[in-house]
Computed example of a mutant assay.
Amino acid sequence: MTNASLQLAATSGLLTLGMFGVGLALLAVLGGSFWLGTRVKSREPARPRPEEQPHLPPGGAVHEIRENREPDEVPRTAEGGRPLTPYELTNMQTRSSTDQKRPRWSRGSSGSFGGGGLGSH
């Protein structure tokens, strides 16, 4: 080894002091973030008490109902009459379908547009 490489490999007091300073700065940033988080949390409203929590309705839990629905028929206009405006078609209702069997995709179909399957041929 040459003298130059020995001098480069020797530890410097300035380097040790610099690393100690970086460690102290990191501790100061972490402590400051903890202090700031505590201040922000203290300004938040208090947690709700148990009596303020939501309760089940008197009839018990409400469950999901799965059924097939079908829309009402679109009103027909008389031959040669004026077309209906969107405002005349509002509040179209649905009703429970007579056939409650779930619709399935046709065999060999990908099930969606662009799904990558061969599709029905």
Score class of each variant (00 low, 15 high):
Ser97Cys: 04
Glu79Trp: 06
Leu84Ile: 01
Arg66Ser: 08
Gln7Pro: 00
Gly80Ser: 04
Thr98Ile: 03
Gly117Met: 05
Glu64Phe: 10
Thr16Gly: 07
Thr11Gly: 08
Gly111Thr: 06
Leu8Arg: 15
Arg47Met: 11
His63Arg: 09
Asn68Ala: 07
Gly18Thr: 09
Arg76Val: 14
Arg49Ser: 13
Arg43Asn: 03
Pro54His: 07
Ser5Leu: 13
Val29Ile: 15
Pro83Tyr: 04
Ala9Ile: 05
Ser112Val: 00
Glu73His: 02
Thr77Glu: 02
Leu84Lys: 13
Leu84Ser: 06
Ala10Trp: 01
Arg47Glu: 15
Arg49Leu: 15
His121Gly: 04
Ser112Phe: 02
Pro75Gln: 04
Gly60Met: 07
Thr85His: 06
Glu88Asn: 05
Gly32His: 05
Ala78Thr: 07
Gly116Asn: 09
Gly18Glu: 05
Leu26Gln: 13
Pro83Thr: 02
Gly23Val: 01
Phe20Lys: 09
Gln7Lys: 14
Thr90Glu: 13
Thr85Asp: 11
Trp105Tyr: 09
Glu79Arg: 04
His63Phe: 12
Glu44Thr: 03
Met92Ala: 08
Leu27Asn: 12
Arg102Tyr: 01
Arg49Met: 06
Leu14Ser: 11
Ser33Trp: 09
Glu73Arg: 10
Gly23Tyr: 02
Ser109Ala: 14
Asn3Lys: 12
Leu56Asp: 12
Ser12Cys: 02
Thr11Tyr: 01
Leu26Ala: 14
Ile65Pro: 00
Arg102Trp: 10
Glu64Ala: 13
Arg102Gly: 00
Pro75Tyr: 01
